[in-house]
Design a protein around this nucleic acid. Structure first.
Lengths: 215, 215
DNA sequence: ACTTGTCCTGTCATGCCGTCAGCTTACCGA
DNA sequence: TCGGTAAGCTGACGGCATGACAGGACAAGT
């Protein structure tokens, strides 16, 4: 578990190498935002980074491998999403605020990383465990917190026993992720951002507490 | 808008041609189920279909083009999903049943076509209008019906005015689609199919009617 | 058998993939 | 200052996918 960055052939990367590596990752990230995943070629990334394909292969086994690196970085940042849920109240007006802020924070995060998250989502759906793990890592931070919230409410008798906390939390998080990924879609649909968020927050509140929020 | 099947170079396809074309589509569908989208190559599809790459290019501009064909076919079948919602009651026990059957039907459909739906989802998320349109076509059948249901309940004063029917319906459908796409994921999570469905149904019921169901 | 139009494939130029040997650059100790 | 050593980069190459074309195989009607 060393933080050592290594090349494919086992060398330790120095300052210069790390810079090149990072530049390649940055360029790959940009490419993913601007062109379909399927059409992202190693040679294009290398060109954009002002280097050669051979250099790319020195640091990553293939495009997928590099994507995983970017995703891993993002996952670290995603751990901060826990803040949106843990230690917050789900009662009364505070509960409604929690819902709103969760939705807001989640959508922001997704919008910020949408290109890479699309690919992670695809990989996970295709059954690739590495991508699946990363998706977990990001979503778990929120899902676990939500699961705990439901469990606690359940123990107080405020939520039906029939509710499965993990399933409920997972479903809500999946909803947020999916809606976030298709935000543009909703716009074409005639639903505006501003209208979407309260409805999502409402659903979250309903799902967690089983009750309508007091605004 | 003729139903005429044409080759890339404008000829009309005859019986034999259509058969080959269909075989290519079938094989492509299988390939998508078994290997990552990014790695599906024309040559593999052609080999699997017992023909040559050149033949493939006679009927489709590229892999993406062929995928669109499959998706279009699926979209037609997807129109039948309307049945799961339209004309159903959302009151009392019948309401709960409606929710359950919607979830059940939706998950089934998604599981049946998961490989191709993954790709459609990706294309739509990447902003490709052609894929987006197809995704709409499938989801609209359900979303519109749900939107109507909410509107009707609203007009009867049974649902808050603040709810935006389209946003609510869209969010719920997005949730169903996303959960369906990651069903395997939930399993690894420790949530079983059987537990997942009732929770989804509960969320749907809560979202549409704003009330807990009577079971 | 002959004609016609559909259908398939051999072949080719082009371009990307992934690897290697070998060159250049940076660092370090003597 | 001067090698020595390891890091860093690239040109070049065999291999494979792409996409275009022209010509041959095939089915159906006459």
């Amino acid at each position: 578990m060393t933080g050592q960055v290594r090349t494919v052939d086992g060398r330790v990367a120095g300052r210069r190498g790390q810079a090149t590596r990072q530049k390649l990752l940055d360029c790959l990230g940009e490419m993913l935002s601007s062109s379909p995943y399927r059409d992202v070629k190693v040679i294009d990334v290398a060109r954009k980074a002002g280097t050669s394909p051979a250099t790319f292969y020195q640091y990553f086994p293939d495009v997928e491998g590099a994507v995983l690196e970017i995703a891993e970085e993002m996952a670290k940042e995603g751990a901060g999403l826990t803040e949106l849920v843990s230690g917050r109240s789900w009662v009364g007006k505070a509960g409604w605020q929690t819902s709103e802020e969760l939705v807001e924070g989640f959508l922001d995060f997704w919008r910020k990383h949408d290109a890479i998250l699309r690919v992670v989502d695809l990989g996970a759906a295709e059954g690739d465990k590495r991508f699946y793990k990363i998706r977990m890592k990001i979503l778990n931070s929120v899902t676990n917190s939500l699961t705990d919230a439901v469990k606690e409410l359940q123990s107080k008798g405020k939520v039906d026993k029939e509710v499965n906390p993990a399933a409920m939390a997972g479903s809500l998080v999946a909803m947020l992720a999916s809606v976030a990924g298709h935000q543009k879609g909703f716009q074409t649909w005639g639903v505006k951002q501003a209208e979407l968020k309260p409805n999502l927050a409402l659903l979250v509140h309903l799902g967690i507490t089983g009750k309508k929020p007091t605004r």
